[in-house]
Amino acid sequence: MTRLPQERPGWDLSFLRVGVLVTAAVAAVAALVVGLVGGWADAAGVLVGAAVVTSFFVVSGVVIAWAGRIDDTLTLPAALGTFFVKALVLFAVLNALPEDGWLDRLTMAWSVIVGALLWSGVQLRWVWTRPLYYVTPPAPPGQATAPPAPERPTTRG
């Protein structure tokens, strides 16, 4: 019996769309409330913090999925390397911001923390509500994954 090469399941990045939409909605409401209560420099901090967190999760998701499509053993090094690069970039950006600038750095820091927790919640919910298989599920009826075996001639005797 000839076997076809088993197709590897693709990496699902649909959580990114949900995370972006949830973050955009929460950031818009939070920026409005914070802007009215604390000032527009604080509102800018909320929006920049939300953008930082969103970009970090999107970049990580795309890089890890790319590495996983090549080989599953590359996902951890890709995740750690991406995290290291993002931490260096964030450190450089935060050091480049003036202390009394157009956004409040403390508000931005808190919005990064809240945004990371929000994204973690989105990812947890996404994982808990998806059917994740340990093995590739069988093909639905009517869709053969391998060609049918040749028929054997029957002998009567």
Rank of each mutant, 00 (worst) to 15 (best):
W110T: 04
Y133F: 12
T2H: 12
E7Y: 05
R69A: 15
D104E: 04
A28R: 01
V48Y: 00
E151T: 10
V59E: 05
A67M: 08
S55F: 09
L36R: 07
V22F: 06
G10Y: 12
P148E: 12
A67V: 11
G157A: 14
P5Y: 03
G81V: 08
G10T: 06
A30T: 15
G157W: 06
A146Q: 05
T154L: 15
T75Y: 00
A139L: 07
A24E: 10
A51P: 00
T154E: 13
L80D: 02
L88R: 02
E99L: 05
T82W: 01
K86L: 15
V37L: 15
R8W: 05
A78L: 03
G142T: 06
M1E: 08
Y133S: 14
T155D: 06
V33I: 14
L36V: 14
T155M: 09
A24F: 11
L94P: 01
W128Q: 13
L80G: 11
G19H: 07
P9N: 08
R125F: 15
P131Q: 09
L80F: 13
F91L: 13
D12F: 02
V62P: 01
V34G: 01
F57S: 12
V33T: 09
L103K: 02
F84V: 12
R69M: 11
V37C: 03
A116I: 03
R125L: 15
S120Q: 07
V63Y: 05
T129E: 06
W66L: 12
R3P: 04
L94I: 08
R8D: 10
S111M: 14
A41P: 00
V26I: 15
W110P: 00
E7P: 04
G115M: 03
V62W: 07
A24T: 14
W66R: 10
R130N: 11
T2V: 14
P147T: 12
L90W: 05
G10Q: 08
V46I: 07
G10K: 03
I113N: 01
R125Y: 15
L103R: 03
V63I: 14
L124W: 09
L80W: 02
Q143V: 15
A50T: 00
A87W: 06
A24K: 06
A92F: 08
Q6T: 15
G35P: 08
N95V: 09
A44P: 00
I70R: 12
D72N: 14
T107M: 14
A87G: 01
R3C: 03
S120R: 02
Y134W: 06
L94S: 10
L97V: 10
G49Y: 01
S60L: 13
G49A: 02
D71K: 13
R69Y: 04
L13C: 08
D42H: 10
A109Y: 03
V58H: 04
G49R: 00
A31R: 01
L124S: 09
T82F: 04
G49N: 03
A96N: 08
V89E: 04
